[in-house]
Design a protein around this nucleic acid. Structure first.
Ligand code: MN
Ligand code: MN
Ligand code: MN
Ligand code: MN
Lengths: 241, 241
DNA sequence: ACTATTTTTTAGGTTTGTCTAAAAATTTGA
DNA sequence: TCAAATTTTTAGACAAACCTAAAAAATAGT
């Protein structure tokens, strides 16, 4: 009985079939892991709830429950029923590799192909699942091993280490100070196009000239000497240094 | 009854749901269309059989039958039971777009990232399914609108038109003639690495010095003045001009 | 503390793309 | 030409990833 099982396993090993148990995270599973990673960050390391995941994956809570059971079976997440989830070491590794690929491809699309930063998300959403370590590393070299993507988001290195950079929201900067734009907290085309229209881009120098008492909107001076108006809603989503 | 149906369809249209009937060719469907295109070419325009498809897709004939029924329903293939299939205009368009993407990505991998021509097929097999017209056209520009891929295969333009080039097999070239290597008929890493080892690459000048009576093997002189031995098996799979 | 509400899970189904086994059609060849 | 071999299709199942409806657990409000 048990001897039979061992024989059978040996046979599988011989034929290299055991690999399947190791490899194999589907497109869908990768997306869940990536989203769990990002929501955990946002929650300051706290568990992510089923409903949060359902909302962001555009599916129903029931479907999320199914997937969580499956990911837990594969030891990619820590899952206690009704208590939400966090990633295991292994799950985190996969999530970081997907994020690395996503952001490297975004750099490629903007720097090499000339896309605007508002046009690249959906394409990168597909490219992030291309499975080839050699490709990722060669792409990284080709792009000059960038540390940040076109939105200012950090690109993890091949071991999963994130470059860090102190930054704060423009909305928190006091009057008269001069800062540099280093990132955005919202990636919607509408928001990015709004920034384009106001000539605010990654690397722009921003001097805060005036802050309205009434609505906390800003008037700022850019490096091109243009003075532009920035609503508080926008200022809250701009990262500066 | 029929009025009810029309009402229902109008409702769908109103909500933009009808789009789904038009768009949507899955990864798997795209692969079938591409393979049908290539096998039809190979067969000189004749129908492709279920078993041929089963062989090359690494599935069972029963699964192929299922898929053919489905592709026929979508008007992507001409299918008469037991008689094999050919592509419709629409199916051919999709096939050519997949082939275009495959070959453009191969150029990218070799020219820009420095991969060898024997390492790129599996990666291109994934990249060919990335869905973005703008991406394909920008990639094409970035690469300088190449006409041929790293294996010498023609790259269809955005309308599906293949560049043509007269060529013949090295095995058919008479003694003493000098030709240029322009393509391979086999893409296996083993074959490509064999050519690398013998310094035969796309663009190599080849002068036929000697043809053996016995086994039809060749001794040829390359542009680097090296004299190398080429078996008939290899000569039959080398395209020259 | 104990309902009422919200969140999450379970139960039962669907679709896509695969499989094996068996039936049907076609082709081969004596 | 017609029986045997081959090819192709049909029938019936399964896993993955989704759904709706209903049940169960957790949380909140008085
Ligand atoms: Mn994705
Ligand atoms: Mn980004
Ligand atoms: Mn493919
Ligand atoms: Mn090729």
């Amino acid at each position: 009985m048990s001897k039979n099982l061992i024989n059978w396993l040996e046979n599988l090993l011989l034929w290299g079939i055991i690999i399947k148990l190791k490899a194999m995270t589907s497109f869908t599973e990768e997306n869940y892991l990536k989203i769990i990673y990002m929501l955990t960050e946002q929650n300051g390391g706290n568990e992510v709830s089923t409903n949060e995941l359902a909302e962001i994956t555009q599916t129903k809570a029931a479907s999320v429950s199914d997937m969580l059971r499956k990911l837990a079976e594969k030891n990619l997440i820590n899952y206690r029923k009704y208590q939400g989830v966090t990633l295991t070491k292994e799950g985190q590794q996969i999530a970081l590799s997907v994020i690395r690929k996503h952001r490297l491809w975004e750099v490629f699309l903007v720097d090499k192909l000339g896309f605007g930063w508002d046009e690249i998300h959906d394409i990168a959403e597909q490219l992030e699942h291309i499975d080839s370590k050699e490709l990722t590393e060669k792409l990284d070299k080709f792009l000059g091993s960038p540390q940040f993507d076109p939105h200012g988001d950090p690109i993890p290195d091949s071991k999963g280490k994130m470059p860090s950079m102190a930054s704060c929201k423009l909305s928190e900067v006091p009057i008269d100070q001069t800062v540099v734009m280093v990132g955005v907290l919202v990636h919607s085309p509408a928001f990015l196009q709004h920034l384009d229209k106001n000539h605010i881009t990654l690397g722009s120098t921003i001097k805060i000239q005036e802050v309205s008492e009434f609505d906390k909107s800003f008037t700022v001076l850019l490096n091109n000497n243009q003075s532009v108006f920035v609503s508080n809603e926008v200022a809250k989503n701009l990262l500066v240094k």
